[in-house]
Design a protein around this nucleic acid. Sequence first.
DNA 1: CTTTGGATCGTCT
DNA 2: GACGATCCAAAGG
Length: 185
Amino acid sequence: MKPLEPAFFERDPVLVAQGLLNMLLVRGERRGRIVEVEAYGGIDDPASHAWRGMTPRTEVMFGPPGRWYVYLSYGIHWCINAVCDSEGTAGAVLLRAIEPVSGSEEMWNSRAVPQNKRKRLGLADGPGKLASAFGIDGSFGGQPIRDSELTILDDGVAVASSSVTTRIGLSPGRGKDLLRRFVVD
DNA sequence: CTTTGGATCGTCT
DNA sequence: GACGATCCAAAGG
């Protein structure tokens, strides 16, 4: 069980995305295996928030790798990303889904889903749900990933099989065709 | 099973 | 002032 070195994140987001599959997202008792991610680039990727250059919101994406980039989606859901690539070059990996390993009770509580509905709803199978299950909000943005309240650990479990697809929820012409979504089968 | 619409707000034009 | 890296309940087939 080891933390990820800054060098792990200081690479092309696509490589980091693939590398993050099967890693553990950890916050206290809550642990989940990362099973779905998406890679976002910088000025070369029209789907990236950093595409038009640096703004107050996307500043973190241009900063040093190995930090959290957190943004609000559709005015409702928080989404978390790991900042990648070297400082000065924007890049991030969106964490889209985890499979609960422990602390699922805590996760449901964070989601504020009543007991009777917990069977049919996914716990953390979507970026908004994932952030909600781990109690993440904008205050996590810019914080380091290593040795942090919210961190990622490698427990050495290899990925048996994975798939690549296009990214979810993008507007036409915005890098929709790029194969940058990675899923554990 | 699939489709639809409402919730809701920070960010950039 | 419009829109989005979403989610879920409700309605329809």
